[in-house]
Computed example of a mutant assay.
Amino acid sequence: MDKVVLSEISLTYGEVKTPKGFEIDRKSIKNDIVSSYVEENRVSNNNKDFSYNDYKLNFSQKIGWLLDYIRDHFVEKYKQSLINKNIFGNVYSPSEVSLCRNNVDPVDLRNSADYTLIYIVDCEKESCELVIEYDDNRRKGRTWHVPVKNNHFYLFPSTQKYFFTANKSKKLNVILTVTYEYI
């Protein structure tokens, strides 16, 4: 008897562990995201668009180090290269729930992202969960729940829908999202 895997939904996750002196500057990344949020520098100004609650970020060295870390470890472990497509931030106020969404354009799949990276910049401990929806053949509507932790990342196919549960803290939750194409 032989078996071939025709399709799989992979989720790569973990803590960003950098050498001493090369830590990710989460405070600066948070400041950039919150500044964009306060200035209402949105990816889309159409309030019917999923990206209405996404805030633009300029590429910077501090974000570059994080992206280099993810890319280098992904290439080493999975032998695939990742190319950045979009970078944006999200800010969730106390009691706020994110929209359930994915990061593909259904009418332009060819130019859509292959992977979505969620990086937790600054969230209070146990304040919310990342929920990823998936189908397991005929068992539809399955979900994977993970409590978010600062300096942790979650990388999954951009076709997967995901959302953040309500922010149970009294502080803002700040999250960085990067979409990738792989080669």
Rank of each mutant, 00 (worst) to 15 (best):
R139C: 13
T143Y: 02
Q61S: 14
L130N: 08
A166T: 02
D114W: 01
K85E: 10
S51C: 03
R110F: 08
G141T: 06
P106T: 09
D68S: 13
N167E: 03
T159N: 08
D54Y: 11
K149A: 05
F88G: 07
E39A: 12
S7L: 09
N47G: 00
V131A: 01
E124P: 07
K62W: 05
V178R: 11
A166S: 11
I70H: 09
A113W: 00
D2N: 15
N167P: 03
A166K: 11
I120Y: 04
I132D: 03
R142Q: 15
V146T: 14
G64V: 09
F50H: 04
N47K: 06
K27Q: 09
N150H: 02
K149T: 03
L130V: 09
S169F: 06
E15N: 02
N47C: 02
I70Y: 08
K171Q: 12
E133M: 07
E129L: 05
S10C: 02
S98R: 05
A113L: 00
D72K: 14
T159I: 11
L66P: 12
E8P: 01
N137L: 15
T18K: 12
P94I: 04
S127E: 07
L172C: 00
T165Y: 10
Y37P: 06
K20P: 03
H145V: 04
I9K: 06
L66R: 12
V91S: 05
I70L: 09
V97L: 02
Y134L: 07
L109K: 11
Y162E: 02
D49E: 12
S60N: 10
E76G: 14
V107P: 01
P19H: 01
P147G: 01
L66F: 12
G14D: 00
F88E: 04
L67M: 13
N111L: 03
E126Q: 13
I120N: 10
V97S: 00
K168R: 10
K30M: 14
C123R: 01
Y55G: 08
I183M: 14
K171F: 11
G21Q: 07
E8R: 12
E76S: 15
V97N: 01
L109F: 09
D32A: 15
K27P: 01
H152L: 03
I33H: 10
S51R: 08
Y134F: 15
D135G: 09
L57M: 11
D105N: 13
Y52H: 12
G64H: 11
E15C: 01
L11F: 07
V75R: 13
S158T: 04
W144S: 06
N90P: 01
R101V: 08
Y13P: 00
N58R: 11
L109W: 05
G141D: 10
K17G: 00
N45L: 14
L99D: 10
C123H: 02
G14P: 00
V174I: 14
